[in-house]
Amino acid sequence: MYDALILAGGSARRLGGVDKPAVDVGGRTLLEHVVAAVADADRIVVVGPHRPLPFEVVWCVEDPLGGGPVAAIAVGLAHTSADVVLVLAADLPSVAPAVPVLLLGLSAEYDAALLVDAAGRSNHLAVAWRRDALTAALAALGEPADAAVRALTSSVAVAQVPDPQGWGRDCDTWADVDAARQALGDQQR
């Protein structure tokens, strides 16, 4: 049992300011891919502007608007209630296989489990959290607006979940979007 918190705001500067969660990849928007990946969550909270979705979700926006991912996590967490909260960016079209792996990675000894790619880079927006640890990390951080999201994990026990398949690869640039389209197209064949 878990709740999912999906961050779907941001300015998408590297994509020319388009509505990134609404970008089509493989016949679905980026946001639809991520929401579908967590369809078994008890509650799905999307932090960002309201968009048409074929799923039931709770909508909210960060305060202040444009305050960044930590501000979005802080406002979204208030709409969840499960002991485990999965935090995902809305631009992870291949994240579905990572969801159960992240949840399993959150064993008794860890406060959070996050994806780590083949190059050793941690994805701080593909993380399963114990609710109490995330609440404490947010409180310790102070003002969430414009805070670095990696600071949330700096004082908690983190399980590093290997991601050799690139499940946590995000779509920050048009080259990333093209690669995701190609990868999803290859999977559908």
Rank of each mutant, 00 (worst) to 15 (best):
A113M: 07
V99Y: 10
V127M: 11
S81K: 00
P100T: 08
T135H: 05
R131P: 07
G120L: 02
V161A: 03
A72L: 06
D83M: 13
A133L: 06
A41I: 14
L30H: 07
G105P: 09
K20N: 11
D83P: 02
V95F: 10
N123L: 08
I44Q: 06
G48L: 01
A148C: 05
R13N: 06
P52M: 05
Q182W: 09
S11H: 15
A39R: 12
Q188S: 03
G16N: 02
P93Y: 08
A36S: 11
R51M: 09
G168D: 09
G120S: 04
L102H: 06
E143M: 07
V38P: 05
S154R: 07
V127K: 01
H79W: 06
G9W: 13
Q160M: 10
L65T: 12
G16R: 04
A8V: 07
A96R: 15
T80D: 04
W174L: 13
G16F: 09
S122T: 09
G66N: 11
E143N: 10
R150S: 05
E62P: 15
A147E: 01
N123S: 11
V58D: 04
A128F: 13
R189Q: 04
A128Y: 13
W174V: 07
L53Y: 05
A145S: 12
V87E: 11
V35D: 06
H124C: 08
V18W: 09
R43G: 00
H50F: 07
A175Y: 06
A22E: 09
W174I: 04
A179M: 01
N123F: 13
A89G: 10
A128V: 04
G26P: 02
A140R: 03
G16W: 10
V23H: 07
L115W: 10
T29E: 05
P144C: 11
P52D: 12
A41D: 15
P21S: 11
Q182L: 05
D42S: 14
L141P: 01
A175I: 12
P97L: 13
P54F: 05
A183V: 00
L53C: 02
H33S: 08
G142P: 00
S107G: 02
D172A: 07
L104D: 14
F55C: 04
D3R: 09
L77N: 12
V158G: 04
D83S: 15
A89M: 09
L152Q: 05
V158W: 00
L77E: 10
D178M: 03
